[in-house]
């Protein structure tokens, strides 16, 4: 870049003389990478904590067909997530979360296509693909809002849990889940659901805000004037990271 320009006859620029980008990446891009590494640690801590809680709890030992919800063992995820919007009462295990995964992967593709268009200074394509990415982000958030709402309200019949009331064990029918009660299993299961998917959803939300900002700035010709669409690339890194985290959440929360 411009910093590399030296006056003719001056000394050849060397690695530690300044003005050279380390790792051939701009400052902003490098810092985005290091931020993402720190975010990796946060998400890892949450997911590993989930693993610890799961390993310290009895697992359901019978056949999958005989499974019923109880706070005495950890639930089978596919029995918990089996509802799909507009299909009340139909058992479709993991279908909705599969759709959400597809939406996020698709929005990652449109994001990387926007980055590629930015390299060519093709403003119209950047705008088009950013809009698709924003749409994908909002759709995912809408799906998650529905998923949360269903998880909180619970099933029609609820489930019978053994709880201590006034010092004795009693049977109690629990509907849905919150931070202290959970019809799908031990309360810790619901707590992790809210924290992990909630923290990821917050990331998606801030990603959508950043994407809107990028769309606005390219649409108003800001990056054309600057002569570089590198901001699209930096925000793209963040957006792909959000997709990456979802791949891990999908496996460790919904599949395993």
């Amino acid at each position: 870049m411009a910093a590399n320009v030296t006056t003719p006859g001056a000394i050849e620029p060397k690695m530690w003389m300044g003005g050279i980008e380390p790792m051939k990446a701009s400052y902003g891009k490098l810092m985005m990478w290091f931020f993402l590494i720190s975010d990796t640690f946060t998400f890892s801590a949450l997911l590993v904590a989930y693993g610890t809680a799961r390993f310290s709890f009895p697992a359901f030992s019978g056949k999958a067909e005989d499974f019923t919800f109880s706070n005495m063992y950890w639930p089978i995820p596919e029995k918990v997530y089996e509802a799909v919007p507009f299909l009340h009462g139909v058992t479709l295990p993991l279908v909705f979360v599969g759709i959400m995964t597809f939406i996020l992967i698709a929005s990652s593709v449109t994001m990387v296509l926007a980055v590629e268009a930015g390299h060519r200074m093709d403003r119209e394509s950047v705008e088009k693909y950013m809009l698709w990415t924003i749409l994908g982000g909002f759709t995912f958030l809408g799906c998650q809002a529905w998923e949360w709402s269903h998880f909180i309200h619970g099933t029609d019949t609820g489930s019978v849990m053994k709880v201590i009331q006034d010092g004795v064990w009693v049977d109690k029918t629990v509907f849905g889940a919150n931070l202290t009660e959970n019809q799908y299993g031990p309360p810790a299961f619901a707590d992790f659901f809210f924290f992990i998917t909630g923290f990821h959803g917050t990331h998606v939300f801030s990603g959508v805000i950043l994407n809107i900002l990028i769309f606005f700035r390219s649409a108003t010709g800001f990056y054309d004037k600057r002569g570089s669409y590198e901001m699209v690339e930096k925000v793209g890194l963040y957006w792909h990271f959000v997709d990456l985290v979802w791949v891990f959440v999908f496996t460790f929360f919904y599949l395993v």
């Binding site: 490098l30 990478w33 590993v48 693993g51 809680a53 799961r54 390993f55 310290s56 009895p58």
Partner: peptide
């Protein structure tokens, strides 16, 4: 750049090992 991103992930591997063993011990 590749290595400075990949190497810190080793700490995550350690975290997984340590805390899953811990979970088993609690169980």
């Amino acid at each position: 750049l590749i290595w400075s991103i990949l190497v810190p992930v080793v700490f995550v591997a350690w975290l997984i090992l340590a805390l899953l063993l811990e979970g088993n011990a609690i169980f």
